[in-house]
Nucleic acid binder design. Structure first.
Lengths: 143, 143
DNA sequence: GTTCTTGCAAAATATTTGCAAGACG
DNA sequence: CGTCTTGCAAATATTTTGCAAGAAC
């Protein structure tokens, strides 16, 4: 995604596209997996964690990102849906317990679960855990 | 579950049933939902958090409990399966964003997902989020 | 008496806020 | 100017460890 696309995306969510926000959104778009605060901090380098934190909080309020809890805490992922009134792009994730990476299984949607009707479901978090292909093969690595 | 049952359960997992361990296991068995460290601390009162933490760590190693991440961090739940070589009693949970409670939907098993065979899946975490029936009705409560 | 367990304190992490300076309009 | 954004420092909260005293065997 180029800068202009990122800016448009941010604007579509009623957020003013400041320099930092563009950097954070770009970092998220650049990875193909959800990122933790720490990963974003590392990857970006130039922005203080409080800034990243506030940016992510804002993004989340405006439904530009959603959060996901794997075993290592909270991760942030750009919402893929263009209808930003509902976060309907949830898919299954795989968290590798060896390398700590969380992989999107974008082609696997979260299965529908029917609950008694007095439950109001707003989002879902489905994470499979185990060993990813890479770690399974190269047994001794720790990326 | 009475004390003797708890003790037996602990022993079946090759853990020495000390006083603290019995208390922690009982607290977990007494609730019908997974508990966080903080909740256990509150509920138990008599044991220092480091003790609870170490007990839970041990329980987890011995597969007496498993962990679950909802939006509020890690929660611990007794494994229901009697075959403790594998944690096969995973079910869906519902996390209420109003009252913060996490409810077991014990009758709803986590759906099977078939991944490419080089993924080794060891466990799964499936949490639905939204508003629980109680909070939906009594709009203004915060239990 | 040797090993295991526990409580306390404190270290290590992670998350969140206050505030003043700067950017933007 | 007045408002919004940012970086730094610091407050909070959470998780984890070191260690010495006590319990178990």
């Amino acid at each position: 995604m180029n800068d202009q696309n990122i800016i448009d995306l941010i604007k579509r969510h009623d957020i003013k596209p400041t320099a930092n926000r563009i950097i954070v959104a770009k970092a998220l778009a650049g990875q193909h997996c959800p990122m933790s605060m720490a990963e974003l901090e590392d990857r970006i380098g130039s922005i203080d964690k409080s800034g990243i934190f506030r940016t992510l909080t804002l993004f989340k309020e405006q439904q530009l990102v959603h959060t996901l809890e794997d075993g290592d805490g909270v991760r942030y992922e750009l919402c893929h849906s263009h209808d930003h009134s509902i976060d309907n792009d949830m898919h299954v994730h795989f968290h590798c317990e060896k390398c700590g990476q969380t992989i999107c299984l974008e082609h696997i949607p979260i299965p529908e679960i029917s609950l008694p009707e007095d439950f109001q479901v707003q989002s879902a978090n489905f994470v499979l855990k185990g060993t990813c292909p890479k770690c399974r093969n190269h047994r001794h690595q720790k990326p």
